[in-house]
Design a protein around this nucleic acid. Structure first.
Length: 585
RNA sequence: GCGCCAGUAGCUCAGGUGGAUAGAGCAGCGGUCUUCUAAACCGCGGGUCGGGGGUUCGAAUCCCUCCUGGCGUGCCA
């Protein structure tokens, strides 16, 4: 029996064909296939109701015609029960046999990927995420862009796209005048060797404080910035050292999070590419002088007709609008990007809307190909009081400290639950569980909501958390370890699923493509989290209700099949979320 | 002022491209380890989906309006 990878999409196609056969107006009829409440089936098509309403016909009768046509043409794969309910819902329920065949066919991550990968095959996406300022420690605020961005990269890759990961560092700001001043006056070489970012931050604070009370210092810091921008070898050497050490430190954290960039093309990379932007935008009449600055207005837009997009400051310097425009061009010309995704918090919405409006007009006027553009946003981080986050000292919570604490707490729990494991093993487990918990806490909620920072939530190891998913993996791994070799039974020997828990788990497994579709369409990884949580829940119920290693070989075969596929799908999903699975904890 | 986002159980959140009785976790209460890891499972209680109007056979979901909070709104990013 042939099974479909994405049942919902195939049902939609078949329903459309049947509707065409019946002479229905295809511009009006929309099958509207959704995942259904399990009580009714696996999928439901709701499209008949509005269509009948519009044509003033009996919805139930139309649903019957449609279903009959599906059956007559045998267009519907055998093994899917179709029924009509209520006023005209069409319910589709996968039979145990269909589910069994689905699980036999999709037997590895590679085989899931082969079908999923048809979606974006041949397309190139540049994803811009992370993008911290150099010479500063990353704090919790950087977590979302890193984690959400990486997960989006993995989703796109899984769906067949070529993905270029670009870290657009803030390495060329006005802050460097102060850092250069600090570097020259307050540097502690030992501290620098110990922890460069810590030292740079201290230098910045010390220099900033000095500049505030001493006008001469402020003057000197400004002079340093000018020197840097003019290419003074001394200033450039220090700037390069600061950036080089910064990136090195950043990579330590990226490594722990399993994030690996292809490029670190920061703002400084575009500093010799801004003249093209000024010239072309002026030539095509898009940019104009206003209050001494070079700006772009969008007369057709209610707000941007008067709210300028400033691309050159009054003092002649570029700003992030300039470098972002240059970046758009570079990504299309150099990487041949079909799509560009930028992941930042939603406070920058105006900026990116203006950037995109401007880019569109610019590219159209100069005959360039226009890429797809997505500004992927997320909410602001708030403290537990619901206001912008701040510790008592006014410093944000450092990402490194958060990860360390998560790992430490995980270590204490592993030690308590599994004291017999060697310490090295417990450390390894704690690293995965702790970091996984932090990552999952972030990815399990809808990215557009504001983010209430809570130690308790980010370090939680109970309920809908990474440890819950990892624990399901561990229990499966444990079963497979304890399975005597002569008791292993291949999927061909499996009988059809019978118990309520078996069937619920099998249905959940076959729903993976629907979850993937939802996540990648909306670029919202939390749909994967939600799915994995439900999958792990279905497995846990199954695990408690049905013993796997039993005497009956046919029953044992089908339960082993469920275990192996559950593990495979969990691992696939965790990988999409940038969480590394475990086989022991 | 204008604009964007949000308001769902005591708390933290799903569901939001309209569908059937609005779901989880945490917290509370009660059960389940001589059998594949109890970081688990099973059960119970808990709701004017911010208020009001509208569209619809059907609204947490779409439209209007009001309230509350956050953010943005010319030289930071």
């Amino acid at each position: 029996m042939d099974v479909w990878f994405d049942v919902a999409r195939n049902l939609e196609a078949r329903l459309n064909e049947a509707a065409a056969d019946l002479g229905w107006d295809r511009d009006v009829f929309e099958p509207a296939v959704r995942t259904a409440d399990p009580r009714f089936g696996d999928f439901q098509a709701n499209g008949v109701l509005p269509y009948a309403k519009r044509n003033k016909q009996n919805p139930r009768a139309l649903a019957e015609q449609l279903v009959e046509n599906l059956g007559e043409k045998k267009a519907l794969a055998a093994g899917i029960d179709v029924s009509i309910a209520g006023p005209g819902f069409i319910n589709f329920k996968l039979t145990p046999t269909y589910l069994l065949n689905w699980l036999r066919q999709f037997d590895s991550e590679a085989h899931l990927q082969r079908d999923a990968g048809k979606r974006f095959a041949g397309r190139t996406w540049v994803v811009d995420y992370g993008s911290p300022n150099t010479a500063k420690q990353m704090h919790v605020g950087h977590l979302r862009t890193i984690i959400v961005g990486e997960s989006i990269c993995r989703l796109l890759e899984f769906c067949g796209a070529k993905v270029i990961r670009d870290n657009h560092l803030g390495d060329w700001g006005t802050q460097f005048g102060i850092i250069l001043y600090g570097y020259k006056h307050f540097l502690d070489p030992e501290a620098l060797a110990r922890d460069p970012l810590e030292e740079f931050e201290r230098l910045y604070k010390a220099a900033n404080a000095r500049c505030k009370e001493d006008p001469a210092a402020l003057e000197e810091a400004r002079a340093e910035l000018v020197r840097l921008q003019q290419g003074d070898p001394d200033a450039v050497a220090i700037w390069e050292k600061v950036n080089q050490l910064s990136v090195q430190s950043l990579k330590e954290i990226y490594e722990r999070l399993d994030v690996h960039y292809d490029h670190y093309l920061g703002e400084s990379f575009y500093r010799d590419k801004v003249d093209t932007v000024y010239r072309e935008l002026t030539e095509i009449g898009l940019a104009e002088e206003s209050e001494g600055a070079l700006v772009v207005f969008h007369p057709e837009h209610p707000r941007f007709a008067t709210q300028p997009f400033i691309i050159r400051k009054r003092d002649g310097a570029s700003n992030y609008a300039t470098t972002d425009l240059a970046t758009m061009l570079y990504r299309v010309e150099h990487f041949d990007a079909d799509g560009i995704i930028i992941v930042t918090d939603s406070r920058q919405n105006d900026h990116f809307e203006q950037l995109w409006l401007t880019t569109r007009k610019w590219f159209e006027a100069t005959g360039r190909r226009l890429p797809e553009f997505q500004h992927v946003t997320f909410g602001t981080i708030l403290g537990e009081d619901g206001k912008a986050i701040k510790t008592r000292s006014g410093d944000p919570i450092r990402l490194k400290a958060l990860l360390d604490e998560a790992v430490e707490r995980a270590f204490a729990i592993v030690t308590e639950k599994n004291p017999d494991l060697p310490e090295e093993k417990r450390r390894e487990i704690a690293e995965r569980v702790g970091i996984g918990a932090v990552v999952y806490a972030d990815l399990s909620q809808n990215r557009t909501s504001d983010y209430i920072f809570s130690w308790q939530k980010l370090l939680s190891f109970e309920g809908n958390t990474a440890p819950y998913l990892l624990y399901a993996c561990v229990r499966i791994a444990s079963i497979l370890r304890k399975l005597p070799a002569e008791q292993d039974t291949p999927p061909e020997n499996a009988s059809a699923f019978e118990t309520a828990e078996e069937i619920a788990l099998a249905r959940k497994l076959a729903a993976f493509p629907a979850a993937l579709d939802q996540a990648v369409t909306t670029l919202r990884p939390h749909f994967i989290s939600l799915y994995l949580y439900e999958l792990a829940g279905a497995f846990s119920s199954f695990y408690n209700a049905d013993r796997v290693i039993v005497d009956d070989p046919a029953v044992r075969a089908r339960r082993l099949l469920l275990c192996r596929r559950t593990l495979m799908v969990l691992q696939t999903g965790l990988h999409l979320l940038t969480i590394r699975p475990l086989d022991q904890m």
